[in-house]
Design a protein around this nucleic acid. Structure first.
Length: 809
RNA sequence: GCUGAUGUGGCGAAAUUGGUAUACGCACAGCACUCAAAAUGCUGCGGGAAACCAUGUGGGUUCGAGUCCCACCAUCAGCACCA
């Protein structure tokens, strides 16, 4: 009888749905809880991508195993449904995003169910549901109340395609992360969130959580902490001074000029003293036309203009040094001004070379054998440097010199120790319709006032015209009757904020809502938060490391600070899956025509085969190209499993000839699941099946264990087969198989014998044989005799149970 | 340039963490079943006649290295004038 996966899969999916098999237990009695989380999808019109199930299947396997291990498991799902595609679709086709979103969610839900994930569907959340975004808005108001949300007019990244402001994190290579249009700088009043206030904690607390090393490294890199000093350089014959930031205060004696960013306000302040103001202004204008990206692109050639009429005074040498304007100094980092030490900084070196500026060596290599050539390149080595020509720090290694200079600067009040971060505050406004309205009102008298919390949610009004206005205002700006309101503070006429929140808002806390999704009084109850926090395991894409993952950690820390959540960090463990590429090894895209539709795969091979294949493709954390031949192989494997029932021997125990294999397999599969080594777990299953086929028999006990182990991978087929042998329970209700360590050890072991480290032969011995006996056996061996003949044995090494090596001369 | 990975058969990949390199799968070939094909089952499958040689390249440590150390090369991802 052949396997009808369509019928079987439908049968079990319906049963799970009807019985709510995988719903998390509502009571909090079981102290063993496990909360597994996958990134909830954006319900795009294209439907599910084959990449989604890679992550979902992995955690589904772990979740199913954890349930069998006796845990109360929460494995929820929802939809991150605000965002531009639905809005752009609405602009084109005049269909309300609400409708598109609902249709897409229905499609996604069906697709996800067809894959047999053990999600708790009773907790499904949807970020566009007013009952949900009520709490997103509530969190925003709390941020505002604590001074962490503020309005600022500042140059922002503006996407010329989407016509919205973007956060730094959303700009990739100078173009919009979403639509690929060029990004320009634009002055705009925006809501900002002070993520920078949490920069240090976002670094420090990484030490206490189990994130993949590359994720931690990427987050640290993005936050970009650097330690240094701010130093005050007086401007000669004025009361003004230039504050610079440096990580190398030890090189201050080698500062031969200063550089300020074109936007630096000192230029305006000292305009009357500058003798070449026209030239400076021209340079400023030229720089303003370039985006940050273009500036960085023009990496090779540095440009700049000297400010005539002004000199800075080196506070340690008293030397008067020139001041230059150049766009290699960024106004957005540090103080927008630097001291240039061309002998010990690559960029300063390039600039000094180009403009013929003087260089002064103040650091030399400790290691005399290191040759440096300051004509060719700067000497920047921190580990190997010693100060010279530097007065009171002469002879000190760089690190000590830095400490000494800072001490001096602070004692003389000309500078302070300072930590800087690359991380910037989060631009939180979007001039778009399909997002959470920002619950703020502007009153002429009172300024910005949050709307009263009891009025939440502030619902998004229904509109007809989704087109953003040409001046870049949100479509909501045209909804006059919605905008006009009363000031909650003084009662006078006031206007609503028309910007909406970015897509990252709803996803910054959704995992909390899953804990108590229908709560009308709080975002989640204290009990639920206490019980389920933190998330035990969160798997998602690397592309979210500096966006979603950082943002949600920030919000969570804030919620911790105001006493809403019980843990500092939301996620105890974070892992990441590799991308699935098309059959040609390229990223799947419509234009390349290499998109694999999960529906087609389920239709042709069934969900179980699909799941097994995605887990068998290769190491979970690495990219893998789709292969139609390989998925067929996985289908063949499941067919062989299906046909095992013809070889069943009626015996509840393991057969003697299979006992070792069974115990080893339980151990291997259990460990592999915990370590996400799904591919080798499946290889173990295949080896077992090959063994059963070879012997043409397996006991009922072996069969049951095998089905239990395979169940998290191929849940439908295994449940069906389990039911067929007359089991009253489903596999999901049975405990995970256990193994006996003693029974995983072979009685007879094969020992490889090497001569001079090269394998010559092997002998088989009982596992506990004494070393003397083994030695005797080795020397009786024919191959060994031949190889040691006429040679002197220098040494013999026996590593217990592993190897025997004879060294001869 | 910086950070983090990766490099093993024709292909996807394993290797108990320093101890028999190539498990498992795909592709391929042969055999069985069949009138035939498909499906299925079984067998073989790094190179070499062999000694031996093979884990990106070149060194090193070790009785022994895919695994550790040093120096390179290539590919991928992220960041990038961050002072």
């Amino acid at each position: 009888m052949s396997y009808n996966f369509k019928e079987v899969e439908k049968k079990w999916q319906d049963k799970w749905d009807k019985e709510g098999t995988f719903q998390a237990k509502q009571d909090f009695k079981n102290p063993k809880k496990w909360y597994g989380l996958i990134e909830f999808p954006y319900p795009s019109g294209q439907g599910l991508h084959v990449g989604h199930p890679r992550s979902y299947t992995a955690l589904d396997i772990i979740a199913r195993k954890k349930r069998m291990d006796g845990y109360n498991v929460l494995y929820p799902i929802g939809f991150d449904a605000f965002g531009l595609p639905a809005e752009n679709y609405a602009i084109k086709n005049h269909v309300h995003p609400k409708i598109t979103t609902e249709n897409n969610i229905n499609h996604f839900r069906e697709q996800l169910k067809s894959l047999g994930f053990s999600f708790d569907w009773s907790r499904e959340v949807n970020t566009t549901d007013p009952d949900y975004y009520k709490w997103t808005q509530w969190i925003f108001i709390q941020l505002y109340k604590k001074g962490l949300a503020y309005k600022a007019t500042m140059p922002i990244n503006f996407c010329t395609g989407c016509k919205v402001g973007l956060a730094n994190e959303e700009v990739v290579n100078g173009v919009c992360e979403r639509c690929g249009s060029p990004v320009v700088q634009k002055e705009k009043s925006q809501w900002m969130l002070k993520i920078t206030e949490y920069a240090q904690r976002l670094i420090d607390d990484l030490d206490d959580i189990d994130f993949l090393e590359k994720i931690k490294a990427q987050q640290k890199n993005w936050i970009g902490r650097s330690e240094g000093a701010e130093v005050n350089f007086k401007i000669d014959s004025t009361d003004d001074s230039l504050i610079i930031y440096t990580t190398r205060p030890d090189t201050i004696f080698g500062a031969t000029y200063m550089v300020i960013a074109p936007e630096h306000k000192m230029i305006e302040k000292q305009a009357d003293k500058i003798t070449n103001l026209a030239e400076i202004k021209a340079y400023q204008e030229k720089a303003a036309l370039k985006s940050d990206f273009e500036r960085a692109e023009l990496n090779k050639e540095k440009t700049g203009v000297e400010i005539q009429g002004l000199k800075a005074v080196n506070p340690l040498t008293g030397e008067k040094i020139p001041i230059w304007v150049s766009d290699y100094v960024l106004i957005t980092y540090g103080t927008g001004a630097i001291m240039a030490v061309p002998a010990h900084d690559d960029r300063d070196f390039a600039f000094a070379k180009k403009f013929g500026l003087p260089m002064k060596q103040v650091i030399e290599p400790k290691n005399a054998s290191v040759k440096i050539d300051l004509e060719k390149e700067a000497f920047t080595d921190v580990e190997d440097g010693v100060a010279v020509n530097s007065d009171f720090i002469d002879g000190l290694p760089v690190k000590e010199a830095i400490a000494k200079v800072i001490e001096y600067l602070e004692a003389n009040k000309i500078g302070t120790k300072k930590v800087n971060y690359k991380l910037r505050d989060w631009v939180f406004s979007r001039q778009r319709y399909w997002g959470e309205p920002i619950p703020m009102v502007y009153c002429e008298t009172c300024g910005w006032v949050p709307i009263p919390e009891e009025e939440l949610p502030l619902k998004l009004p229904d509109i007809e015209d989704y087109e953003p206005s040409e001046n870049g205002e949100s479509p909501l700006a045209k909804q006059l009757d919605w905008i006009q309101t009363k000031c909650p503070h003084c009662g006078k006429k006031a206007m609503r904020e028309t910007d909406t929140m970015p897509q990252w808002a709803g996803s910054s806390w959704y995992f909390l809502r899953y804990m108590d999704p229908h709560n009308e009084k709080e975002l989640a109850s204290k009990e639920a938060l206490e019980y389920w926090s933190p998330i035990d395991w969160y798997n998602g894409g690397m592309e979210h490391t500096t966006l979603h993952l950082l943002y949600s950690r920030f919000w969570h820390k804030f919620l911790y600070d105001i006493g809403v959540v019980p843990t500092k960090e939301p996620y105890q463990k974070r892992t990441s899956h590799g991308m699935i590429l098309g059959t040609n090894g390229e990223k799947m895209s419509k234009s390349k025509g290499n998109v694999i539709n999960p529906d087609d795969i389920v239709e042709e091979f069934g969900a179980d085969t699909f799941r097994v294949y995605e887990m068998f493709m290769g190491p979970f954390d690495q990219v893998a190209a789709w292969s139609m031949e390989s998925i067929r192989g996985c289908g063949k494997f499941l067919d062989r499993v299906w046909n095992l029932k013809d070889m069943l021997v009626d015996d509840e125990n393991y057969l003697p000839e299979h006992e070792k294999m069974m115990h080893k397999a339980i151990k291997k599969v259990s460990n592999d699941i915990e370590e996400m080594k799904f591919n080798t777990a499946i290889a173990t299953f295949m080896t077992m099946v090959n063994e059963f086929y070879k012997d043409k028999k397996l006991s009922k006990g072996e069969y049951k264990t095998f089905l239990q182990l395979l169940n998290p991978f191929a849940p439908h087929m295994t449940e069906e087969l389990f039911e067929e042998i007359g089991e009253s329970k489903t596999i999901a209700q049975t405990p995970w198989p256990t193994y006996d360590e003693a029974k995983t050890i072979d009685d007879q072991i094969e020992i490889p014998i090497q001569i001079n480290g090269k394998l010559k032969t092997t002998i088989t011995i009982p596992k506990d044989l004494a070393e003397e006996e083994i030695r005797k056996k080795v020397h009786e061996n024919e191959v060994v005799c031949k190889n040691v003949e006429n040679k002197t044995i220098v040494k013999e090494i026996y590593v217990n149970g592993k190897i025997y090596n004879i060294v001869v001369k």
